[in-house]
């Protein structure tokens, strides 16, 4: 299989998957070395032509539309992207960098109650419960989800932007 065939085959696999697929599974299906698959994927990601793009998101690779054509996609699908409130984004940021973290710990940073926004974030599938802290009252711990990675378009938590010093 030459490089052109490899990237075309990858395109097929990503198309039928519709969601993020780990490199290992792609390599397995293609019977090609994972290292080589990764290189091919990186090359595909670097391309800027076409309405579709290859992206590394939430622990895998996927084929998705380019943001600059979103207005047409949303009109066809009749949807309107919904933004998170700033309060919700702040809370999400604290959880992302400090996870697993309890509600009271988040409140200590924000200086304000977070009950409402926690509900929103959970309903959007961006955070989930992650057991309980071995501390008085055994408060619930929270962590971010795969959905959160997709939300920011990152592969894993290591890709989170650096916190300011």
């Amino acid at each position: 299989m030459d490089d052109t065939q490899l990237s075309e085959a990858l395109e097929c696999l990503l198309f039928v998957s519709g969601e993020a697929v780990p490199v290992e599974r792609l390599a397995e299906a293609l019977e090609v070395d994972a290292e080589r698959v990764l290189q091919a994927l990186e090359a595909m990601r670097a391309r800027s032509d076409g309405g579709l793009q290859v992206a590394a998101v939430a622990g895998g690779w996927m084929l998705c539309t380019r943001p600059q054509y979103a207005q047409y996609v949303t009109r066809l699908l009749r949807v309107q992207p919904q933004k998170l409130s700033r309060a919700a984004l702040e809370t999400l940021a604290i959880i992302a960098y400090r996870q697993p973290i309890t509600g009271p710990e988040i409140e200590a940073v924000r200086g304000v109650s977070v009950d409402g926004v926690m509900g929103t974030l959970q309903a959007r599938g961006l955070i989930r419960e992650a057991g309980r802290k071995q501390a008085p009252g055994r408060p619930i711990l929270y962590e971010t989800t795969e959905e959160f990675l997709r939300y920011l378009g990152i592969k894993d938590l290591a890709e989170l932007p650096q916190l300011e010093a």
Partner: peptide
């Protein structure tokens, strides 16, 4: 997060 999400909510899977 907001600026990243702004881009990524405009990206759609198949």
């Amino acid at each position: 997060f907001r600026s990243r999400a702004e881009v990524w909510t405009r990206v759609f899977p198949r």
